[in-house]
Structures are given as structure tokens and as C-alpha cells.
Simulated scan of single mutants.
Amino acid sequence: MSDTQRCLQRLKYNYQKILGDNLVGIYLHGSYVMGGYNENVSDLDYLVIVKTPLSFLIKRQLMAITIEKLWPLAPAKGLEFHVLLLPNVKHFRQPMPFDFHFSKMHFQHYQKDPTDYIKSMKGTDPDLAAHITIINHFGRVLVGRPVYQIFDKVPQKIYWQSIIFDIENAKTTIISQPVYVILNLCRALAYKKDRLITSKLSGGQWGLKHLDSQSGSLIQQALTEYTRHRLKSTFSASTDELNIFATKMITKLDL
């Protein structure tokens, strides 16, 4: 059994134990359900749906279990989850509010001041429109009722807005995160042109088939890097090449 499978077993058992009757379900999304998952380079994404908001005590217990029991088994980029209320996902609203959230980028904040983190981590996230769309098309139920009984459909316009939000700084972030941005731009264009909902991996593969050879060379390098079994990057492209690609894609996306 892989570390990820053990992590999911612990996740299912411990979250059910902590949340009890308030838990509606736990739903997996992201690369794990879309064919691009690799323990050495991925994160593990899931939504936790509950009936009523969580107390501070329950959130503290949830974080303790997540860090102590799940994190040691997590993939290289960690775990990312949102806690959402059932009424909100059954009747979609944008921006989607969340009751609690955690990801690797918040790890230091939590470690430094757990109380402040737990009290402050509540709000809205436009990315949730994309997460729920992925769940509606590819999601897996870890525990709970079927997806179609829980999640409302996300309007195409709102899903498109969430895609734009994710790539709005592409011209600058492509320099520091070339693989992520290149594949995300391909994923965005695949949706705009063909209404395809894709992962970064399948978005890049779409780009190889539909874009010019100069772009294809950069995309192929990004795909090769993305599917490598290590975190240390060997990606190499000049700033000019990256700027040209980003500008070209933004133009095609009419942004």
C-alpha cells in the first residue's frame, strides 16, 4: 500500500471521528482524480463538506490530526483542503465562502501561531469554483453521499473567471514558476477553444497537438519536468522565450 493510500485511510477514519454527525462527506479533486498524480511532485486535494460551521476546538483537533497523522504520509507538495458548508455547495454562490482551509503555503503560519491561524482562516476563495467543477466531472467520494447529490453545477462563466484568476499574473509568474504557468495556460486555452476541463498534464498534452512547434518545444519541456519523479527542477528556458510564450497565450485567450 502506498503512502497516499495510507494517508487517505487515516484521513477518512480520523475526520469522521472528529466531525461525527456534522460531516456530510469528503471529496477528492485535483491531480489525484485527473490522472496526473505523482507522490514525488504533487499535492493531495480534497473538500470537506459539513452541515454547520466548525468550532475553534474542532478546527484545532482537525489540524492536530492533519499535521501529526496525515502530513508524514502526504505527497511532496503536501495536503490542501477546504471545509465548506452544505447549503453553499448545494446552491452555488460566487465567491464561494469557506469555513476553514489549509495548504502547504500556510504551514509556517500554523506552526508559528496555531491559535491565530485557526481563528483567521475563514473567508472566500474564487478558486473553489474550479475545484467544484473538477469534482462534478472527475471527483471521487472518500466518504459520504454521491457527488451529484451534494454539489450544484458551476456556471461556465464563473468557471472561466476562476481560470482567469489563476493565470492573471502569468506574464510575471512564468519566470519563477515556468512549468506550472505553461501548463496552466494550455489548460485555460483548451477550455476556451474546446470547452475541455483538463488537468495540467492533459492541458499540456492538448497544447502539444494544437499549438505551433515553437510553443510545442516549451510545452514538451514543461510536461517532461512535470512528470519527473523529483521536485528539484531541471527546466531551462530563457526569460525571452518564457515572455514570448506567455504573451502569445494571453493574446489567444483574449485577456
Rank of each mutant, 00 (worst) to 15 (best):
Q156V: 06
K209D: 04
T224H: 06
Q177T: 14
S202D: 09
K232P: 07
E39K: 12
G25F: 10
D125S: 05
L19I: 12
H137A: 09
L57C: 07
K232E: 07
K69L: 11
L86E: 06
N22M: 09
P95A: 05
N88I: 05
P178K: 01
F102V: 10
Q221Y: 15
L19W: 07
V33G: 08
L79I: 06
I244M: 06
N14D: 15
A130W: 01
Q205I: 00
L183F: 00
L57V: 10
Y226E: 15
W160N: 02
T173W: 00
I250Y: 07
K112F: 05
S120K: 07
A188D: 00
R228K: 15
T133H: 11
S202K: 11
V154P: 12
K200L: 07
L196V: 07
H29D: 12
Q221T: 14
R93M: 08
N22T: 04
P126V: 03
L201F: 03
I18E: 14
F235S: 05
G35V: 10
F98K: 10
N184S: 02
R230F: 05
S202H: 10
K248T: 01
D127S: 01
D3N: 07
F56H: 07
D166Y: 00
R145E: 07
R93S: 08
L128C: 05
D152E: 06
F98G: 12
N22Y: 02
K171Y: 02
C186E: 00
L44C: 08
N14E: 13
S176P: 11
H137I: 14
N14L: 09
N88C: 02
Q214M: 07
I49S: 14
Q214C: 09
G204S: 01
Q9L: 07
Y46D: 06
S199P: 07
V33N: 10
V181L: 02
L253G: 04
Y148P: 02
H229N: 03
L208C: 03
F98E: 15
C186L: 05
I150W: 06
Y191Q: 00
T239P: 10
Q111G: 14
D194P: 15
D194S: 15
N243R: 07
N38L: 09
I65Q: 12
Q16A: 08
I135W: 11
S213F: 13
L62M: 11
L86C: 10
